[in-house]
Design a protein around this nucleic acid. Structure first.
Lengths: 365, 365
DNA sequence: CCTAGGATTGAGACCGGACTCACATCGATT
DNA sequence: AATCGATGTGAGTCCGGTCTCAATCCTAGG
């Protein structure tokens, strides 16, 4: 019952062994629950361990089992609710299988990501879940894969990298929702995203983000199918902080060729877009329609409630973690893809028909 | 230039040493940049390391330096933007000093927290940042402190635990904002929180959360100062999921003694409260005023924008991490408290005067 | 009563670095 | 030229576990 006692160094198997009057090997066996140990010894060891407050050093254990029971998660920004929710899906799943999570933010910068991956590898995590900042420059991820360490991608694909990826099919949902806007009468549909590019958007341009490429492709396809062409002058990338997004929004809504609908690439963007619209004294959806990616709780509270593209973010995280752990623990990959991760258009009140078109087909369901 | 080569086991110092034709000790010195190494040896070793793609095993390194360069963060729920932001503050600060973060969610359950702390200790993290689920049952945290491992509390204090704590002074801001509501004419002020209790609220009751106790105390003080007494029948704890919060809200707004103002203890609660109010056909602030804790971006987008109590959440995380790292790296604690972490009442549009009172004193400013 | 074979047990190697210690080496001091 | 202190260098230990291997104990079968 020496509840106090040792303060400095932690108790080791050797200490326990000594206290229990057995060899280190026997103590280790009793503690680790392997090998053959007599009842007498087991009891003595367990009692000694209890009394000394013994706790195994996971570092040492990891060192010679080669397993750290830790997975590394690399995302853009944990503050972004999208990643927050995905991370929750990951950590919940990980915990269930006895894994812990080391989290690193990259702010969507490749250099930070390269670094993060390196650090995690050095720490000998059992596997990695990465939301790649760039879908194009992926050499560092290739190295991970080549090193044989389990790797799974979240949210975005990486070009030429044959790795399990958990993301929704952006092309399809983008196509469908654009179609919905077109049917409501919109022709001037804007798209605002934060992906960085060197110059203004040009059709077919290679983008850093597979997600955004797919969305733009979906939009293009929807227009094309109607015999129309996508207004690429309304595609605004490089949207940065709140101010720049508001500036972009004001610009989009100005002049005779103003956008009649805006698709915000994520919740943060939508926030600033809505703010800019409100400041301009315009109203949603009578003056301009709005569609945003991700369904957050607050989107139901705005006036009007926002029409959104809901993504199964938590499930994505869960699926990614499940797949990674499967890779870590056993067979390569049983089923190539898990259950389908599908996005869904949630029609609320922020999409209507543009003013000068009248009600060709009623928006909303 | 053997970019491929070894696939199985990682390269170790011994391998590098052999390749560079020097002893393991010399290789380690050159690689670790310590001790005395001749230029010739250093060059050979570095070249060999480069060629072999040597990467130090941080696990092994940690084992005999006793430092893992990792800190453990234990929060209620990373999905909650409050913690998301705080965590960002922590990770940013940690990264700057070369630390990584292992994140564990507890869902505010003590058992999970005890577990989390244990796991992190076993993994030999250099220090811990905990947002304690309970301010009362803190024996597991006491043990951490007694074990000598650096520990810092976030968001909430823990009773009888003398540990650096980074949280805003809830009593003061609660007092001030209640005062503000009272001056606007409110007398029937409700308070809704998720803290779990055994029975309904009784004045002076011991709560699991120091935060909530302090807030209630602030409310009580404000009423008392006006010669009034706090309507404790309007204190609703144990608010659980969205449904239960909506039920509570409807109940608060019913009958002759209905609440004229509601204080929502966090953003998630506010979400459901607003939803319930909207569903009831009532409007804010003419029928009922609303005040919520935490200033999220979306609170500016509701109609009307919400009056909130803004907390320096990111700074809290940053301060906690800074203090922890200071503890880890050196002197115990130089300044008992860092820069003051103060909450601020942000007056937007959700607080007005109750109907039957008229405009005694105009709310807002 | 003696022995084969499984149950126990202890010594020590090993994981991959960090670091101690004793032993060179070498230019500089007197 | 002999000596001294500052490098250089390699052998080997240690961190705290896991695990191999050979030795020892026991007990049932003959």
């Amino acid at each position: 019952m020496s509840t106090d006692g040792s303060r400095r160094r932690d108790v080791t198997v050797a200490d326990v062994a000594k206290a229990a009057q057995v060899s280190k090997a026997q103590a280790a066996r009793a503690l680790g629950n392997y090998g053959a140990v007599s009842d007498d010894v087991r009891e003595r060891v367990l009692a000694a361990a209890e009394g000394l407050g013994y706790r195994p050093n996971e570092l040492a254990r990891s060192m010679n089992t080669g397993k750290s029971n830790t997975i590394g998660v690399v995302v853009g920004d944990i503050e972004n609710p999208h990643f927050g929710l995905a991370t929750r899906g990951i950590t919940d799943t990980a915990k269930k299988s006895g894994y812990n999570v080391i989290l690193i933010n990259t702010d969507e910068e490749r250099a930070a990501e390269v670094d993060a991956v390196q650090v995690l590898l050095d720490k000998r995590v059992d596997g990695l879940i990465v939301a790649p900042a760039s879908s194009v420059e992926t050499s560092h991820l290739k190295e991970v894969r080549d090193s044989g360490r389990p790797l799974v991608l979240l949210d975005r694909a990486a070009e030429g990298l044959d790795v399990e990826t958990f993301a929704v099919d952006m092309g399809t949902i983008s196509y469908e929702s654009t179609k919905y806007l077109i049917e409501a009468g919109h022709r001037r549909i804007a798209f605002v995203s934060t992906v960085r590019t060197d110059g203004p958007y040009v059709a077919g341009m290679t983008l850093d983000s597979s997600q955004i490429s797919d969305r733009l492709e979906g939009i293009r396809r929807a227009f094309e199918e109607e015999g129309l062409s996508q207004p690429i002058d309304l595609v605004r990338l490089n949207a940065g902080d709140a101010d720049s997004i508001m500036r972009i929004t004001r610009d989009l809504l100005k002049g005779p060729d103003a956008a009649t609908a805006i698709i915000a690439s994520d919740g943060l963007i939508a926030l600033s877009v809505v703010e800019a619209i409100q400041e301009s004294g315009l109203s949603i959806p009578s003056d301009v329609s709005l569609l945003m990616y991700d369904d957050f709780a607050w989107t139901r509270l705005t006036t009007p409630p926002l029409t959104v593209i809901a993504q199964p973010v938590y499930d994505m995280g869960m699926a990614a973690a499940t797949a990674l752990i499967r890779q870590i623990e056993g067979r390569k990959s049983s089923s190539p893809a898990g259950p389908p991760l599908e996005a869904r258009l949630v029609r609320r009140g922020s999409v209507g028909s543009p003013k000068d078109v009248g009600v060709l087909s009623q928006a909303g369901g």
